[in-house]
Amino acid sequence: MTILRSALIAATLATPAVAAEEVNLYSYRQPELIQPLLDAFTAETGIETNVAFLAKGMVERLQAEGKRSPADVILTVDISRLSEAVEAGVTQSIESEALTANVPAEYRDPEGHWYGVTTRARIVYASKDRVAPEEVTTYEDLADPKWQGRICTRSGTHPYTLALVSAMIEHHGEEATKTWLEGVKSNLARKPQGNDRAQVKAIWSGECDISLGNTYYMGKMLEDAEQQEWANSVNVLFPVFEGDGTHVNVSGVAMTKSSPNPENALKLIEFLASPTAQEIYAEANYEYPIAPGTAPTELVANWGSFEADSLNLMTIAGHRAAALKLVEEVDFDG
């Protein structure tokens, strides 16, 4: 625990138990991961927070509740889930100087419906024994026959995979992306299955040599005594798109369309996007804060540096339907 986080929690404990105001949050992130942030927010503002953790179905719940919904703010992961909420009409546009200053343009909705808090990179986990770091260069290169029988990945229809395919469409078009998907499929060591950690386990066991995964899973594996051996068997490598950077995704927040406490909701969103809160959140989740002047934790920084892809995430989200169609056309999971 950092000194900063310890100080914020200590300040929380000194906060009066009763607050005159409140704000309600629907979250796809587990309460234990975000509670330090919410405690710090209450310590700073006196506004109490109420959290409903949802494993799935956030948009459907908001639609069913309609104007009666108690939710003021949603916190979720992955651009597809954020764009789904926007398209469903359950969010509203907001603007503030603080949000503009703390959230770079590529990590916020151009119309102001959502704002990024932290990012994670979609990287390659590579066997320390069987892959030289310089062998991994671009996402495009994953279709090269030199990787035949050497790649593991999760389902092609998973949101993380679809986001990467969507970015490939924006960079190269649908026809070239379909050819790329066919090439990657031909290089798979096994049928797509499991989560990102399962792919690293497969590298450790010798089933494959490289896999696609999110950076924060390295931190999660190092937390787990059983999985530490898997984590220590791989390097974290940062491929890029040809002519651009490394693919990233986002954890983000939005104000609901029916927010009963919009002023408090805006205060919470501004707080979550503040440099201090971003660093706490990034530390808890092994992600990257995005506000100017912020830095990842020492552990995350040790995995390596990278330049993020320049595409706005809403541009990527716009290709999701096309990406899913291509994944199904090539029978990627078959």
Score class of each variant (00 low, 15 high):
2 T>H: 11
4 L>D: 14
12 T>W: 15
16 P>R: 02
20 A>M: 13
24 N>Q: 13
29 R>Y: 13
38 L>W: 00
44 E>K: 15
46 G>Q: 11
47 I>C: 04
48 E>A: 15
51 V>N: 03
52 A>E: 15
54 L>V: 08
57 G>Y: 00
62 L>R: 03
64 A>K: 05
65 E>K: 03
66 G>A: 01
68 R>A: 14
70 P>I: 09
74 I>V: 15
77 V>A: 10
87 E>L: 08
88 A>S: 12
88 A>K: 07
89 G>L: 07
93 S>Y: 04
98 A>D: 06
99 L>F: 06
100 T>V: 11
100 T>E: 10
102 N>M: 00
104 P>M: 07
104 P>F: 03
104 P>A: 05
105 A>Y: 07
108 R>Y: 04
110 P>C: 10
123 I>C: 11
125 Y>I: 08
126 A>P: 13
133 P>A: 01
139 Y>D: 00
140 E>F: 00
141 D>Q: 04
141 D>C: 00
144 D>T: 08
144 D>W: 00
149 G>F: 04
152 C>G: 12
152 C>L: 02
153 T>V: 10
154 R>V: 06
157 T>H: 05
162 L>R: 00
166 S>A: 14
174 E>M: 04
180 W>I: 04
183 G>P: 12
184 V>W: 09
189 A>V: 10
189 A>C: 13
191 K>Y: 03
197 R>V: 13
198 A>E: 14
203 I>M: 10
208 C>N: 04
210 I>L: 03
211 S>W: 01
226 E>S: 11
230 W>I: 02
237 L>C: 13
238 F>Q: 04
238 F>V: 04
249 N>S: 15
250 V>P: 04
251 S>P: 06
254 A>G: 10
256 T>H: 13
257 K>G: 08
265 A>V: 05
266 L>F: 07
269 I>W: 12
269 I>S: 10
270 E>T: 12
272 L>E: 03
277 A>Q: 00
277 A>H: 00
278 Q>S: 13
280 I>K: 03
283 E>C: 06
296 P>W: 11
299 L>P: 08
301 A>F: 10
301 A>V: 09
302 N>R: 14
305 S>A: 13
311 L>W: 01
311 L>H: 07
313 L>S: 02
314 M>F: 08
319 H>D: 09
320 R>S: 09
321 A>I: 09
323 A>C: 09
324 L>A: 15
324 L>T: 11
326 L>A: 08
328 E>G: 08
329 E>F: 09
330 V>H: 02
334 G>I: 12
